[in-house]
């Protein structure tokens, strides 16, 4: 079967076989569903065949989910990865995000409807990616892609600032800085921004609503969050609703931060070079009504971006 016509293939990995049976029954009518209770066997399959969406448990003997997802990403970077866990474990969440680039962090017990929606959204992105890959290469040539990209820094941490300044000086990136959220919005409305580096607090305000609205309006913008907080619930919301790219704990380790920056720059350049590529990002709306209203308000304020860069779905 040609790659484009193949049904979307899902793989669930969990050491509890009852979870696997239940999920397989739920999704078998719409997708091709594979299940594995051993992460090593799951990796073996990933070496053999394309898996569009991988959903993994975190705590399993032999290998944890974050590690499996990181290794799956190395094998199939185009795949969409989801963590499904019953434990709130901030280290696992950070690893799954930074090394596994997860699309969602889901918790057990899950709501079947929400799980349906999440898988449907991931499947749709997967199919669009597949179609884009099959299409002949677009007109965008490597020659007119500017080497430098645009970075927006929303963090006054001297160490973070020093690393970013150094990177911009060496690689010729363009740096914008804001000390307040409205200043950041003004910049985002005026300039094209590829990478946002943000603490979770800027001046007097929390930046999470801004990051969440940005994810809806501009999925190409990659967000690196730098924060001293280790709150699993907040991180979970940032992954699912702000589609953040990396999460770096403060005080930042220079090595980790530079690795995150480097990955973001590489990804941004890749997207700039292929405007037709489908960005596998689709943010969930915040659950809390007040927060949803705040995010919608910000989406309105960032509205002009929509016109400029074309609305992603």
């Amino acid at each position: 079967m040609p790659d484009t016509q193949r049904p979307v293939r899902l793989m669930f990995v969990d050491d509890e076989s009852r979870i696997l049976r239940s999920l397989a029954l739920q999704f078998r009518k719409d997708y091709e569903v594979l299940t594995e209770s051993d992460p090593h066997l799951a990796l073996h399959r990933l070496e053999q065949e394309p898996i569009d969406i991988l959903v993994s448990d975190q705590r399993m003997p032999a290998m944890n989910g974050a590690e499996l997802l990181a290794r799956a990403r190395a094998l199939q970077p185009q795949g969409i990865r989801i963590l499904l866990t019953g434990y709130s474990d901030v280290d696992a969440a950070i690893q799954a995000l930074n090394d596994g680039e997860i699309f969602r962090y889901l918790t057990k017990p899950w709501n079947p409807r929400e799980m349906d929606d999440t898988i449907a959204r991931a499947a749709e992105l997967s199919l669009r990616q597949r179609a884009a890959r099959a299409a002949p290469a677009g007109a965008a040539a490597g020659a007119d892609i500017p080497h430098g990209i645009a970075i927006l820094l929303l963090d006054g941490d001297p160490l973070v600032e020093a690393r970013v300044l150094e990177l911009c000086a060496v690689d010729g990136h363009h740096l914008h800085r804001a000390r307040q959220v409205d200043e950041a919005i003004a910049i985002l409305n005026r300039e094209h921004v590829d990478i946002v580096i943000s603490d979770l607090r800027l001046g007097e305000h929390a930046t999470a609503p801004l990051l969440k609205s940005l994810a809806q309006v501009r999925p190409h913008a990659l967000t690196i969050v730098t924060t001293p907080y280790q709150d699993t619930q907040a991180l979970l919301a940032l992954i699912n609703q702000a589609q953040i790219f990396r999460y770096v704990l403060k005080p930042v380790s220079v090595k980790l931060f530079e690795r995150a920056l480097h990955a973001a720059v590489t990804q941004s350049r890749h997207w700039r070079a292929r405007p037709q590529a489908v960005v596998a990002r689709a943010a969930e709306a915040p659950r809390d009504e007040g927060e949803r209203a705040a995010v919608n308000g910000l989406v309105g304020m960032l509205g002009r971006l929509r016109g400029r860069f074309g609305a992603p779905v």
Binding site: Q26, G86, P109
Partner: peptide
Amino acid sequence: NTPLGYVGN
């Protein structure tokens, strides 16, 4: 959470 997950589903 694990048994609740599959029982609910």
